[in-house]
Amino acid sequence: MIMEIDHLKVSLGGAPILHDVNLSLGEGEIYGLLGPNGAGKSTTIAAAIGLLKRDGGQVRIMGKDPQTEAKPIHAKLGVLPEQNGFYDWMTAEDYLGFFAALYDLHPREGDLQDRLARFGLEPRPGQRIGTFSRGMRQRLGLARALIADPALLILDEPTNGLDPRGRREIHDILIDLSENHGVGVLLCTHLLDDVERLCKRIGVIVEGRTVAEGTIADLVRSNDRLVRFRLHVNGDVSKSEVPPTVTVVARDGEWCSVALSPEIDPQTAWRELLFMGWPITEIRHEGGGIEDLYLGLTEGRAA
């Protein structure tokens, strides 16, 4: 495991914030950390990376305790905080160069530009960060977090405020990092779509406690919740066959509500339906699955 948190307890100003937080993250894994506002996600991250002292429990990152061995951990750690600021008077290249030097890296001529290009950042020569769009700033923040080719990447709301294309680009980068470079990613987000697309395992924190941890499929199954969709079908399907993985819940004209077992990949289900003669023209996610799970676990708390 690249990151292990066991029974973490943290107090701030004498007030207990975290009571019992647990999570474990392996190499090349993207782990979703979920919880309502004020649940303790940011405090968990701060304690995990050694910025806050813990009252109890264990934290190991790359086998080391961040409280006593912060320097070697920080050398192989990339963090994109939720409120990620920049030195607006710098150019993107200056900014990356500054952080590269702090990591004692000496990039060759053109290396920094290549990195920027990899993140879809090709600013005008001399263009200052102060003129960047939100999406460009977010990509630059990610490029900075990855400047030292970290083994562990911690991202707090990385796709906040990005347009669909920007989100997709970030997703692709994270998938590439985890699958092709073995980078462990701790993804802290409110966007359940991101979690569903990127993570196999999640942890849910509520009021400073981990209330659920495991693979999405297991958690959804254990909560006995199905994933629901509405399909728009162009034609009569009343006589068409239905695959065993799909349950038709209701029909309303050309719209049809279906439920899938959580372990079923929706793409597989749609292929089977098309094969059986369902002329599907539109698919809408209706709830259930991880969304129902999350709402159930955090019921009554601010989202």
Binding site: I49, P81, G85, L102, Y103
Partner: peptide
Amino acid sequence: GERERGTLVSLLLTPAS
């Protein structure tokens, strides 16, 4: 000011002491 702008934490998380 750096903390409010969110730039301080990035410095604190570098290997610099």
